[in-house]
């Protein structure tokens, strides 16, 4: 009787911890998902500096713009293989918006990544050459970000 109760209690505890894990992360891909979200956050932070100057929300500063653009260009060339393991998609993990088709269309994903690398390299070359050059270079960066998000990111609910 006691053994049965213990088994039931252990079973219940296991089941509830699985539920807890599902709703609070704790999945096998959490570290990878966190790492790539941090990568995206670094893009957004550096873009925020360039975009803030482009839209006139902050003063143009050639040195700061070049630093931010160099960061972007560097980020875009990092090999991200380690944080996109197979199975870490939005179908099986609720803490990511990465659609499963990323893993089915790898050549296209790589092509879109290459487009971002090119757009950010152009931004790196332009950012120190005045506000107009920076403004002209930011459109293609936004397009490159958006092209991948449009195809491979689950829309927000």
């Amino acid at each position: 009787m006691i053994r049965k109760l213990t088994a039931a209690a252990v079973g219940l505890a296991l089941a509830s911890s699985a539920v807890f894990a599902a709703s609070h992360g704790g999945g096998p891909f959490d570290a990878a998902i966190k790492a790539r979200q941090a990568h995206m956050q670094l893009y957004a932070h550096n873009l925020g500096i360039l975009g803030g100057m482009a839209k006139g929300a902050m003063d143009y500063n050639a040195d700061l713009a070049t630093v931010a653009a160099t960061n972007l260009a560097t980020l875009a060339t990092l090999n991200q293989m380690t944080y996109w393991p197979e199975g870490s998609d939005s179908f099986d993990n609720e803490n990511t918006a990465a659609l499963p088709k990323i893993w089915d269309n790898f050549p296209d994903v790589a092509k879109k990544g290459q487009a971002l690398a090119e757009a950010t390299a152009a931004m790196q070359a332009a950012a120190g050459n005045g506000l107009d050059a920076l403004r002209a270079a930011i459109g293609p960066v936004g397009e490159a970000c958006g092209a991948c998000h449009k195809a491979y990111r689950k829309p927000k609910e």
């Binding site: 957004a44 925020g48 975009g51 929300a57 459109g139 397009e143 958006g146 829309p155």
Partner: peptide, 21 residues
Amino acid sequence: LDLMTYFKQGFTPDFDTVGGS
């Protein structure tokens, strides 16, 4: 400024990109 940036480059005020349709 935020809206013009969103319409022209697709960036939200926190520099995420426009999503969905």
